[in-house]
Design a protein around this nucleic acid. Sequence first.
DNA 1: CAAAAAAATGACTAAGTGGTCAGGAAATTG
DNA 2: CAATTTCCTGACCACTTAGTCATTTTTTTG
Lengths: 217, 217
Amino acid sequence: MASKSKMDGSIGAKNKQKILVAAEKAFATYGFKGTSVQQIADEAELPKTNILYYFKSKQGLYVAMLQDIMSLWNSRFDQVTEDDDPAESLADYIADKMTMSRTHPQASKIFAMEVLNGAPYLNKFFSNEHVAWMEGRVAILNSWIAQGRMTAVDPLYLLFHIWACTQHYADFSAQITSLRGKTMKRADFDEATRQLVQLILSGCGLTVPEKYAESAK
Amino acid sequence: MASKSKMDGSIGAKNKQKILVAAEKAFATYGFKGTSVQQIADEAELPKTNILYYFKSKQGLYVAMLQDIMSLWNSRFDQVTEDDDPAESLADYIADKMTMSRTHPQASKIFAMEVLNGAPYLNKFFSNEHVAWMEGRVAILNSWIAQGRMTAVDPLYLLFHIWACTQHYADFSAQITSLRGKTMKRADFDEATRQLVQLILSGCGLTVPEKYAESAK
DNA sequence: CAAAAAAATGACTAAGTGGTCAGGAAATTG
DNA sequence: CAATTTCCTGACCACTTAGTCATTTTTTTG
């Protein structure tokens, strides 16, 4: 019927997806070197040769999975303009990133490992889209500062610190769980988000929006 | 002469140290699985078999190196009491941790990898010394809050956020370098430290001590 | 200086790895 | 329904790896 989709391999597409999910789980747990194609195959419940049929090599699969992951790195903050409210925009951004850490910890860990390793497969992305994104956001933050709507902090470092804190909850969950004696549940993430929003916004001379203020209890 | 040191193998001790240094460099760059004993041997300029002679296995060497690294995790903040000044104590702690990221990035990366991996070799440390340390620090922060000397933030999350931001400069240096277009020099670290101290302290309702205030421009 | 202990090392092994390939099964298409 | 393309897979290979072992060299010690 749909003449358009010709034959993009409905079977192939489904298997590729299955493999990508398995790869994400395995790579997040054992790293690139620590993961064997066989492990991914077991996780995906497919024979090893089948993995190599869809993805030409282990590295090819890894790169495909990385691209998949990078597409998650979008948020409402991408569309914010200098006319928006600094406090609400930043608070929402922090909350979005915290949600990512809660719902996609594996993706965060893989990203972290990749950067720790010198980001060999992300350098192109970093020096293109990412730099452009950064420049746009920095300009807006500087505009807010020039308008006297927030304290004069360096926007670059501010963004670094927001990333550091939000990703920390995914990447260092093992340490956090050990120190708390229990895993972070949804309610704990909400509390951490409030704490972080308060810290960052106060640090920028902003008032915490109603919805991120102290909750029940 | 010194009858005490009997024969703790002055040669052995020196070689062990050499191997540990080489191992730190290799493991930080390629991870545990990604590093071969041969690479460490090359780096240490010793035959591979010699590595296995001093450390019974690759894993044994890794654990020994981890212990070495964990001993670096001390700072002036360990001795702070509830009578000390919150602003100065916290600012100094942040500065200490930033210095660690600048001078020992490899140690930070290895620690990060280990925790990312679920901290298999650190769980014992986490649930003993580390928890005790944490409780002590939390008590002091709570005391400062009770004394009305700082805003009522949750000390646990505050410490998480300090770690996250400071370690970020070592662990994510690849990303930071890409986005800045140049590596972080000593002066950049100093600026980042001032920015972070300002952010955190303001976020806690504290006044930034003189020595961390805006510097020459 | 001889005996004992510590240090060094080349040759080897057993296990695991990513990847190839040829041949066959299933699905799609004209 | 035949032909073509896509999909699937067992057998296999070249290579790397951690770790062993027997032997030799160096250092320490009585």
